[in-house]
């Protein structure tokens, strides 16, 4: 591990990013630097402050339960790296991979 602040290998696994050894080292030190940078937030007292997930204050934005148009199957599959019989084809799934 390049840094004791962040287990880059573990985080990369969660993010599904293959990293080379040198990337683990490089990102490790860069991310540790970034974490030090964001640590300045500790200086801000937020004890009585609510969390903002969204600046828009609207509520209950919904759509009516009405059927609209779909993509044609050709359009749906047009970008597929691999398709077969109208399905998207993927390499074998390891059971309980997640």
């Amino acid at each position: 591990m390049a840094s004791d602040r962040i287990d880059v290998r573990h985080v990369a696994k969660l993010a599904r990013l293959a990293l080379t050894e040198s990337e683990v080292l490089r990102y490790g030190s860069q991310l540790a630097g970034l974490l030090t940078f964001v640590d300045e937030l500790r200086g801000l007292d937020t004890e009585h402050v609510g969390a903002t997930a969204q600046v828009v204050e609207s509520r209950n934005v919904t759509r009516p339960d009405v059927v609209g148009p779909c993509l044609s199957r050709e359009d749906a599959l047009a970008g597929a790296p691999q398709a077969q019989n109208g399905f998207f084809r993927v390499p074998k799934i390891i059971a309980a991979a997640e």
Binding site: R63, V66, V67, G68, P69, C70, L71, R73, A76, L77, N85, G86, F87, F88
Partner: peptide, 14 residues
Amino acid sequence: GCPNAFGGEPNTQV
């Protein structure tokens, strides 16, 4: 707005 319907040819309700 895709239909919530069982069956259907694959990838036609997307």
